[in-house]
Simulated scan of single mutants.
Amino acid sequence: MSADIRDGVLRVSIPGHFSPSQERQWVERMVERMSAKYFARPAVDDDEAASALQRRAQALARQYLGGRGVPSTIGWVTNQTTRWASATPAHRSIRLSHRLRGMPEWVVDYVILHEMAHLVEPSHNAVFWDLLSAYPSTETAKAFLDGAAFAAHRNLTGTPEEL
């Protein structure tokens, strides 16, 4: 199965042997995925969201990084589907994947701190991990994100009892 947008039209390709019910199910699933990926809209105004993220980053930097690593810009993006976030130390910018929205605050805080630590130390060396040692939820947040990535890559949804 695959889906792409050509000339403004979503085209879903599925195997020819699918039953009408399987076809309907997969087309609905692919439309939902593509809509979330390409047509996601922030819940609040972009300027307001960026301002709130900037304040959040400043507070986290004060509390856990000794005031270091505050980005010049930080914002939500919809074009990051293989990473939770990214940082560009040269521009002091941080981009957070829209896929983080709705995750627990302590997980999003960890991702923000992780990217701010990259603004101080670009590589994942001992200095980098030492910067994150003050945040008490680092290991739990990493495990949460690993689980979320595992489920997303396997199209798992629902509760463990349903799987």
Rank of each mutant, 00 (worst) to 15 (best):
S13A: 15
A148C: 13
E28K: 07
K142A: 10
A134N: 02
R83C: 09
K37S: 02
A134I: 06
V27Q: 06
P136I: 08
L53H: 06
P136Q: 03
V9Y: 02
Y64F: 15
P89S: 10
S123A: 14
N79K: 06
D146M: 04
G66D: 12
E121F: 00
P89G: 12
N79T: 14
E48G: 05
L156Y: 10
D47R: 06
T81K: 03
A59F: 11
S93H: 06
A152S: 13
P89Q: 06
G16I: 08
L163N: 07
P104C: 13
Q25D: 15
A40W: 05
T140F: 03
R6N: 10
S137K: 01
F18C: 12
D146S: 08
A61S: 08
R24P: 05
I74T: 02
V31N: 06
W106R: 05
P42I: 07
A151C: 14
A126K: 04
P15D: 11
R24N: 13
E162Y: 05
D7M: 01
A152T: 14
L156H: 10
L65M: 08
P71G: 07
D130V: 06
A87V: 08
I74A: 01
S21Y: 13
R154T: 14
Q54H: 10
N125R: 07
A52T: 11
P122K: 04
N79I: 09
V27P: 08
Q58D: 14
M116D: 04
P20D: 11
S13Y: 06
A126Y: 04
R29I: 11
E115T: 06
S97Q: 04
R95D: 03
A151K: 12
A52M: 12
A143H: 00
S35T: 12
P136D: 11
L131G: 00
K142N: 01
Q22T: 11
T138E: 07
R68Y: 07
I5P: 02
S13F: 15
N125G: 08
F144V: 03
N155E: 15
N155Y: 09
L113T: 05
D109A: 06
D130T: 11
M116W: 02
I112W: 03
S51R: 10
Y38D: 04
P136F: 05
S72V: 15
V70I: 14
E28Y: 11
T82C: 04
A117K: 00
G158D: 13
S123G: 11
E161H: 00
T138M: 09
D46Q: 06
E121K: 00
P104W: 11
R33F: 15
